[in-house]
Design a protein around this nucleic acid. Structure first.
Length: 743
DNA sequence: ATTCTTTAGTTTTTT
DNA sequence: ACTAAAGAAT
């Protein structure tokens, strides 16, 4: 035990050995947060303050859960080797799934209920709108999906939603229909997993009391990312003074809350502190990752936010190198410079995998990739399609889902005619009609059909029945293998030109099934019927869509959005595209809360760097097929000069002036050359002079005040310019109408 | 049923 | 500019 607590700093030690009370740990970036969490669990177990099964640890990603489990089994001595498995460590959704499988009856769900991922959910909603003959122009499926998930995350069932207008009333009615459809089909979406579990614990006193007695300690990672419902979920199990219950040990960083847009409630931290009378919030402020200049810059930026819980990172390491700032003419020049700099770093001995290229939005990766590719530098982009989201895998899973639960209409619709079986839109319409009249699933309604449609569909049903019977005695990997052949999927992709990779992925699915069995098999008696194991595997596929790409072995430069960089660290970090409109993003700057989240994002980006940080921006950038001229980001202005070194001569902030430049720097694609083609109309003058005005010029408008011309297009009476008026916003003005004076 | 054409959307993302 | 998905035509 002495080595368990060795090498912890004062605050870390204090947090780990806290008496059993509710606790809030404010853990700054790079302050050893995960270490504190896992050591706390190990310490509680080793000092016999809690049995392993009395611990519940909640994370947000499967990756974090896995890492925690791995570290724990390394920390606990052999006598506790088994305890890592009796510990409940997982994501909110994973734990809810576990609870709902155990208590499916009390939760009103079939034992083999299926989990819809967001794509499945969207498909289900589209199908619902179609059967109800609802105009999807008036009720866009995506918007409806957002509405439904929003309601569920607020804990509201349809009857509880306050609807003051017709539109909302309609949407609530659709929400209700959607719920009925899911219940009928025995499927559950992500938000439903949480809400269903919440309601189960809230309404079923014996079950709630059971878990309140069982869990003595609940530890929550990334607490700043919890949403309203997740916090309420925790409160149900927490010790509230009279019913018993768990002590909450919440670890988070309000300055790294960057998921507000998907419902994360930064206010949960304040609420928790107040509601549970946490009197000694522990701050982990010593940073073990970055040099001083980097931390000071991060501190300086985040100081501009209001309502923080307050925290200042420091390090025992020296100030280190200054932060390098670079101004480029165009996005392509910026990318070229980044690549040259990377080549220099690699020449000096830095590993490629220690270098990260961060950007605010995915669209920015393109230019960077292009330059990296031409330079022949190995790179890896995070955030593409994940394994279980691939088309061919989704198709295979749909067959498996139908074996486990034939009422799953989403799965049915997906593969009823894939590979093609001559079941077209007409047959499906008749079937849908039948399903409505007989009030059953699509699958169950097939026998009611006659005619040609009935014959083809009957064949499909017999196929599924056969699959179900033939696979009963098989192991899970064998089952998957058999389904791939008997469904015709393999044959289909064999005859497809680009099918080779898909075939490999399908084989990989068999491997995934084998891995799942060996991992699950080691756990408690999962030796049940093969189709129960199948349902577990399907849940696993939905909840853990699979790592992006497992190319981690190769030494490649890492490209990712700032969001996906959270939690990671690199020797050198390039943060490109630091321009107004891009970072902070234009959709965020109108509201103070939006701008503050952007600032936290900037804080996250900066604190990823260990030794060296590069910040860059470009005067002109191609976005959505248009060249844009954005001033440099306000966040650059928030970093004191003492921490930076400009690699290009610093100039006063303003609109990017396309016509001025400095000598000595490559200028292969000046902004003018990228001028937009004007379709069939007369060509736009390349100098972009319109009515005597040019891009970058400061102009005055009677109503909007002063502004900078960002872009111009059109000729003669059509000529118009885009002006950034700052407070008054960005506007397109027709020169024939608006009176603009040079200012 | 396949193939071409048109259209909408393009901040961030996990489960 | 570019993509994915829906719609129209063959």
């Amino acid at each position: 035990m002495s080595d368990l607590l060795a090498n912890l700093n004062r605050e870390q030690l204090q947090a780990v050995t806290l008496p059993p009370r509710h606790a809030l740990i404010l853990a700054g970036a790079g302050s050893g947060k995960t270490r504190v969490l896992t050591t706390r669990i190990a310490w509680l177990v080793q000092t016999a303050q809690v049995e392993p099964q009395g611990v519940l640890a909640v994370t947000f990603t499967n990756k974090a859960a896995k890492e925690m489990l791995a570290r724990l089994s390394a920390m606990l001595p052999l006598s506790f080797a088994r305890s890592a498995r009796t510990l409940w460590v997982g994501t909110f959704h994973g734990l809810c799934n576990r609870l709902l499988r155990i208590h499916h009856r009390d939760a009103g769900l079939p034992q083999l209920f299926q989990i819809l991922d967001s794509g499945d959910q969207l498909a289900a909603i589209k199908r619902l709108l179609k059967t109800l003959n609802v105009d999807d122009d008036k009720f866009p499926p995506r918007e409806l999906q957002h509405f439904i998930n929003g309601q569920k995350e607020a804990g509201s069932r349809p009857h509880a939603v306050e609807a003051w207008d017709d539109y909302t009333r309609r949407r609530v009615a659709l929400y209700q229909e959607y719920e009925a459809q899911c219940q009928r089909e025995g499927v559950v979406d992500f938000a439903e997993l949480l809400l269903r579990t919440y309601e189960l614990l809230e309404r079923n006193e014996p079950i709630r009391q059971h878990y309140q007695r069982r869990f003595r300690h609940i530890l929550v990672d990334e607490f700043q990312d919890t949403n309203k419902l997740q916090y309420r979920w925790l409160k149900l199990l927490a010790d509230n003074g009279n019913e018993g219950g768990a002590r909450l040990f919440c670890v988070g960083d309000d300055d790294q809350s960057i998921y507000g847009f998907r419902g994360a409630e930064i206010g949960n931290m304040r609420d928790f502190e107040r509601e549970y009378r946490v009197d000694n919030v522990i701050r982990l402020e010593q940073n073990y990752r970055s040099h001083g200049n980097i931390l000071d810059a991060a501190n300086a930026i985040i100081r501009n936010n209001t309502g923080r819980l307050g925290k200042n990172l420091w390090t025992e390491r020296g100030a280190g190198e200054p932060i390098r700032v670079y101004e480029a003419f165009a996005d392509s020049d910026e990318a070229r410079w980044v690549v040259e700099e990377i080549q220099a770093l690699v020449r000096d001995g830095m590993s490629r995998s220690g270098i990260a290229l961060l950007y605010r939005s995915n669209a920015q990766s393109r230019v960077l990739e292009h330059q990296l590719f031409s330079a022949g530098i190995a790179y890896r982009v995070y955030g593409g399609l994940r394994f279980f989201e691939r088309q061919e895998i989704k198709h295979a899973l749909a067959y498996l889902r139908l074996i486990a639960n034939s009422d799953d209409d989403t799965a049915f619709s997906r593969v009823v005619n894939f590979p093609a079986r001559g079941i077209g839109a007409r047959s499906m319409e008749t079937l849908q009609e039948a399903a409505r009249t007989w009030n059953g699933s699509l699958y169950a309604s097939v026998p009611h059909l006659g005619g040609k449609a009935g014959t083809a569909l009957g064949g499909f049903v017999r196929l599924i029945e056969a699959l179900r019977n033939e696979t009963r005695a098989l192991t899970l990997p064998e089952l998957v293998d058999h389904v791939l052949d008997a469904s015709g999927l393999r044959n289909h992709y064999r005859s497809e030109k680009e099918g080779q990779e898909r075939l490999e992925n399908l084989d990989e699915l068999i491997n995934a099934a084998a891995n799942f069995v060996s991992e699950a098999g080691a756990e408690a008696g999962q030796s049940a019927e093969s189709h129960t194991l199948l349902a577990d595997f399907l849940a696993h596929a939905s909840l853990e869509a699979g790592d992006h790409q497992a190319d981690a072995g190769s030494d490649a430069v890492q490209l990712m959005t700032v969001h996906s960089s959270k939690g990671l660290e690199f020797d050198a970090v390039f943060l490109s595209g630091l321009e107004e409109g891009l970072f902070p993003h234009e959709n965020s700057v109108l509201e103070a809360s939006g701008l503050e989240e952007e600032r936290r994002l900037m804080y996250v980006a900066i604190t990823r760097a260990r030794q060296r940080l590069y910040l860059s921006f470009a005067q002109s950038r191609m976005l959505h097929g248009q060249v844009r001229y954005n001033p440099r980001s306000r966040f650059l202005e928030e970093i004191p000069e003492a921490y930076t070194r400009w690699l290009t001569p610093p100039r006063p902030k303003g609109g990017g002036m396309a016509s001025t430049g400095y000598g000595g720097y490559p200028r292969s694609s000046p902004p003018q050359a990228a001028a937009k083609r004007a379709g069939s109309a007369a060509p736009v003058p390349p100098r972009r002079d319109v009515g005597g005005l040019r891009v970058g010029q400061l102009v005055a408008h009677a109503k909007f005040g002063q502004g900078v011309i960002m872009a111009a297009e059109g000729n003669g009476s059509d000529a118009r310019v885009q002006v950034n008026f700052g407070r008054a916003g960005v506007k397109w003005l027709l020169l024939a109408v608006a009176k603009l004076e040079p200012a």
